[in-house]
Every structure is written in structure tokens, then in C-alpha cells.
Write a protein that binds this DNA or RNA. Structure first.
Length: 560
RNA sequence: UGUCCGAUGGUGUAACGGUAGCACUGCAGAUUUUGGUUCUGCCGGUCAAGGUUCGAACCCUUGUCGGACAACCA
């Protein structure tokens, strides 16, 4: 702190590698990363970890980070996804170097390099059926057998490969394979497929190509073209690294090589993180959309009310390493609360209202009570909230037979109405079903907030809204989408079996203080004593809709 | 019977051969006109066995456990 020159910030293993490279002046000291999403789905919190890592590394080491779309599979990819991905990265607050890059921009170069490999005797066309190729590959514990295509002449290979490119052959009829080693214990080195035939329109190259490169043939080469120095990816690509390096060695013209570094992907408790499963939830309508506030997508979290800052703080807190990990979803919630606590204006909203009549308060009288907007932020100022004879309080804040530790309202008890008066409960009424229908209180005029001369001390303070000035709104309460800690971790049980039936509760008749009428979509508030809420995009001038981002910590509710 | 990777409190993550620290969670207390925030304290950990060393979470060996790899997906 005061001795920064002596203090060594602890580094994660990737930072250690980078600093060592810097010391050795590798790549003339350039630091250049990339975030390479496939545009086949929406980004989720796991991607956020990767985004914060890559762009964050570029920021802290004065380097650059490219956004590159890994768009080599037109069967799954779509512009809808590239747009959402750009939006999400922007929203998180990161700037990519230059324009977004696309692997599809390198198709010509990739093709030329493939031809070079053929000419070098390092690649060949295989026209065997897919099943045969798979069989010949063998299994991890047992070597594969070589394809007859390996013996084809260079001339024939060139001709066939050209034919593939020109669309002379049907889908699946042949592939281009690298000639590496069918006996390698690493499956990825057993003559991996470089190109497949796909007569499919690509969202950027149109119908120009009838063949598309595979991931392994596209990725490292793209890194090379862009001058990437550190190619950071997740652990499942670790076994690809020898192939990544092999391909680079075939095409590189100097000693520069991008270096692939793998880290452990994020797992969150009570959450599924695979794109396939998230897509299934959307397509089969288990949730309403990709940005459903229950989704772990960046767009879902944004709509839920999460701030970019809280997600970045979360990513910082969870760290980066190579061991498998499951982060408690509570840590993500902690991160939003922490941020929202410092910035969210406090307001009154009653979710489950019950009417209180203050019998000794004059009918028709309105007092504007001065309420602090945010005790954490002196700049936030204050606002006026109207107080009247009839108000609403939270149904949960009243108990007919209240235990000793219950600090709220009950027959004969005194509580403070925050920012207003201390009231005493004198009586209550029930409807025919036995539910409390009205509560009758008296107030003490000497206890007005800010000018209390009574000397009274009470245990409980309640939020409230004026029955005549508040307005109705819909509030949506969210709970975790899955009831199991690891919904995707059960071999015998489909993850959808663990869907929480109460993940969304809609409260149609909530009562909000009048100042909230001016709130706009995305605005965030602390509904005092309840939690953090934001205005949902479903809001209309007639009916406002609020999402509960996260409840406040509740040491009372936990105890019960 | 294959190759690669990993193993530090309940959960994450540091310690780079020299006092096992930090965050979240949990528990206890203080403050509080939010049972919020803030503050204080506490509980709790190096997978196992050998070896190297004055000294090992860290280096070596063996074992155990976990993960990844057998799409014309990325």
C-alpha cells in the first residue's frame, strides 16, 4: 500500500507467463490476445470470465485484444449472435482492437496454406465414408490404421481438393486430412480433418465456399495471421495444443509463434453453462428468451439488473487457475449487492400490501416526508415521500401472535415507520377467510423523523407507502432456475428434471412510492428492506414491471 | 493396459525452498430510523506414503482421487 515498490502483487499463472515473456522480450515485447467466440449462441457468465481475462490482460500489460468470430461452421452460426456478442462485450465495458475480426476473412489464406501442405506431402484427400474414417482412427488406448488416401499422389490430391472447393462433390463425400501420425496416443494427431465439404451459405461469405475449415486448422492460423502472442482458451483444448503447434510449424515463415495457454472454465452452482443446454431451454420454452432474467447469459443478467461492474468484480474475485472449480452462485450475488449498495437509490415499495389506518391522523392531510436517497452516497440527496392517514405495509411485517424476537408490528406494539412517525398497533380486522384485512394504529406526533422529541426507542422500522399516493406495479421475483447444485452432473437424470418450478413468481399488485413513476427501463433501486430491483423492458406507461435482481441479505429470515 | 492436465479450510484463490494469507460462506459481538451497510472477533486447509534439503504446499518417486481426449462441432 504505502510501499508499492516492495509489494509484489500476486499473479495468476497466465500473468506469470506474460511477465516472463516480457522479461525475455519475446515477440519484441508485444502482448496481443484475442477473444474468439463462435457466433452460435448468446454469451454467458462463463464467457464473461474469459472476456474479463483476455481484455483485462491486454489492459494491464498495455497490449491489445482482438474480438474474433470463429465462424467456420455455417450450419450453426448466425448474425443474430454476432450482434448480441458485440453488444455484450461493449456493455461489459471492453474495447476490442480495431474492427471485429472473422475467421471467415481468412478462408482464402487458409486454402492456400492447405494447398501448400498438400504439396509438401503433409495433407491428403480422403474419400472414404465417414464411418470408416472414424473406425480407422482407433481408440485412445489403441493405435489407428492409415487411410489409403495417404498414398495418393500430390497431383491427384491437388486436383481432388480443387474439386472439393469448386463444389464438384456432394457433402460428406470427401475430406482433406493432415498427414501426422495415426499411431499417436493423442487422438487429435491421428490425421485430423482440415476441411469438410459443406454446400451451405455462410452468413458472411455467402455461397463462395463449398468447403469449410475445421477448428484446429482455422484457429491457430487465425492467431498467427493476427499476430496473437498469447492464445488463451479453456482446458478442453489442452490436448489440441500439439496439433495447434504442428500446424503452425507447417506454415510459419519465421520464429514467431502464438502460444496457446489453457485455463479452467467457470462452473457456477445451481446453473447449467453449456450453450447446447441453454439453447434447449430457450427453444423448448422452459424460459422466455435468451435474456430471460433467470438465464446465466450476459443479456439475462443485464436484464435481471446486474451491473457490468459487478460482473467484472466477480470475474476478478474468482481468479484464474487450471484446476476444476465450482463457484458458489452466492459469490455472484455478493458482487451485485456490493455494487448496487453503493449506487442504488433507496425507495419504498410494498410487495404484499396490507392496509394500515392511522386513526388519530387527520383525514385528507398529506405530509411530505424527507427521505435520504442513499446513505452510502452523500451526493445522492433526498426526496419527498407523501405520508397519509391510510398506508400500506408489508403483510409479513405484521403478526397477530408475534414472538419476542419479532421486532415488527403486532397488537399493542410500537414500530417506527421509516422517515415518518412511531405508530402503535391498537387493533386489526379480518376478512371472512380469516386473513388480516386492516390494521388500526395511532401515531405519536412527537416522533416525527428528524424532529423526534419523544425520546422513544423502538426495535423495528418498517417501510410503507401512502394508500392514496402509491401506484400499482408488477414485480417479478426470481429464484434459482435449478433446484440441484449440479443439474448437468447426473448421468441418469436429464438436467431439466431439476428445473425449479418456483423460479419465477409474478406479484401483480405491488404498491410503489410515487417517485418511481418516472423510472425508466433498466433503472436500478433498492426497495428498502427487500432487495435490489430494476425496471424491466416489459414495462408500459400503464403498467410498470420490476425485476428483483437479488434480495437483501436477511439474517432474520435465515434464523426463522 | 493409452496420452495429457490437475489436487491448499465448506467454496474459490495466494504463498515462486524460509511465519500457510486473502475473499465468499458460517458463527459471535458492536453500530444502525433498512433484521441492509459498516466494524471487530472466531471456526476452518496443504490428497497419501517415501525421498532430497538446515528447512518442502512448493523439488523428485510411487500411489490415490478428479478432469479432458475417440464430430466431417468449437
Amino acid at each position: 500500500m504505502d510501499t508499492p515498490e516492495n509489494e509484489k502483487r500476486s499473479l495468476n499463472f497466465i500473468e506469470s507467463i506474460i511477465e516472463e515473456d516480457l522479461r525475455e522480450n519475446k515477440n519484441e515485447g508485444r502482448i496481443h490476445l484475442r477473444f474468439p467466440p463462435e457466433p452460435n449462441g448468446y454469451l454467458h457468465i462463463g464467457h464473461a470470465k474469459s472476456i474479463c481475462l483476455n481484455f483485462g490482460l491486454a489492459e494491464s500489460y498495455n497490449g491489445m485484444c482482438n474480438l474474433r468470430f470463429d465462424d467456420t461452421n455455417p450450419e450453426k452460426e448466425d448474425v443474430e449472435y454476432v450482434d448480441s456478442i458485440k453488444e455484450d462485450i461493449n456493455w461489459l465495458g471492453f474495447k476490442w482492437n480495431d474492427q471485429p475480426y472473422f475467421a471467415s476473412d481468412y478462408f482464402d489464406q487458409l486454402y492456400d496454406w492447405a494447398v501448400k501442405l498438400i504439396k509438401d506431402g503433409k495433407a491428403y484427400v480422403d474419400d472414404q465414408p465417414q464411418e470408416l474414417i472414424r473406425e480407422q482412427r482407433g481408440i485412445p488406448t489403441q493405435a489407428g490404421v492409415e487411410s489409403p488416401g495417404r498414398k495418393r499422389s500430390i497431383e491427384d490430391n491437388i486436383k481432388l481438393f480443387e474439386g472439393m472447393k469448386n463444389g464438384e462433390y456432394p457433402d460428406g463425400s470427401m475430406v482433406l486430412r493432415a498427414k501426422v501420425d495415426m499411431t499417436s496416443p493423442n487422438m487429435h494427431l491421428r490425421d485430423p480433418i482440415m476441411y469438410r465439404i459443406l454446400h451451405k451459405e455462410h452468413h458472411r461469405t455467402g455461397d463462395k465456399w463449398n468447403i469449410y475449415p475445421m477448428y484446429d486448422w482455422a484457429h491457430g492460423q487465425s492467431d498467427y495471421i493476427e499476430g496473437i502472442t498469447h492464445s488463451v482458451c479453456t482446458l478442453e483444448f489442452e490436448v489440441h495444443r500439439p496439433l495447434y503447434n504442428w500446424f503452425l510449424d507447417q506454415i510459419a515463415e519465421n520464429k514467431y509463434r502464438p502460444r496457446q495457454i489453457e485455463f479452467a472454465r467457470l462452473n457456477l452452482s445451481y446453473t447449467v453453462m453449456s450453450k447446447r443446454k441453454l439453447l434447449e431451454l430457450v427453444e423448448d420454452k422452459y424460459v422466455n428468451a435468451w435474456d430471460d432474467p433467470r438465464m446465466p447469459t450476459i443479456s439475462g443478467l443485464r436484464r435481471r439488473g446486474y451491473t457490468a461492474g459487478s460482473i467484472r468484480a466477480f470475474a476478478e474475485r474468482i481468479g484464474v487457475a487450471k484446476r476444476d472449480n465450482v463457484i458458489d452462485v452466492g459469490l455472484l450475488e455478493f458482487s451485485v449487492r456490493e455494487h448496487l449498495n453503493s449506487i442504488a437509490p433507496r425507495v419504498f415499495g410494498v410487495l404484499n400490501p396490507v392496509k394500515v389506518v392511522i386513526t388519530n391522523y387527520p383525514e385528507g392531510k398529506v405530509e411530505d416526508m424527507e427521505l435520504i436517497n442513499n446513505p452510502e452516497d452523500a451526493e445522492a440527496g433526498s426526496r419527498k415521500v407523501p405520508f397519509t392517514r391510510e398506508i400500506f405495509i408489508e403483510r409479513d411485517d405484521f403478526m397477530e401472535d408475534a414472538p419476542k424476537k419479532f421486532f415488527r408490528m403486532g397488537p399493542g406494539r410500537e414500530v417506527r415507520l421509516k422517515g415518518a412517525y412511531i405508530v402503535k398497533c391498537e387493533d386489526f380486522a379480518k376478512d371472512t377467510n380469516g386473513n388480516i384485512s386492516e390494521i388500526y394504529c395511532t401515531y405519536d406526533p412527537d416522533t416525527k423523523s428528524g424532529s423526534d422529541s419523544s425520546g422513544k426507542k423502538v426495535k423495528g422500522t418498517l417501510h410503507w407507502v401512502s394508500a392514496t399516493h402509491s401506484f400499482n406495479a408488477e414485480v417479478r421475483l426470481y429464484d434459482r432456475l435449478f433446484s440441484d447444485e449440479d443439474p448437468a452432473g447426473h448421468k441418469e437424470v436429464d438436467f431439466k428434471e431439476f428445473l425449479n418450478p418456483d423460479s419465477l413468481r409474478i406479484l401483480p399488485g405491488c404498491k410503489l412510492e410515487p417517485s418511481l413513476k418516472d423510472a425508466r427501463i433498466g433503472d436500478k433501486f433498492q426497495f428498502q428492506r427487500l432487495g435490489y430491483f430494476c425496471v424491466d423492458k416489459d414495462s408500459t406507461p400503464e403498467k410498470m414491471v420490476f425485476n428483483r435482481t437479488v434480495p437483501l441479505r436477511d439474517s432474520w429470515g435465515k434464523r426463522k
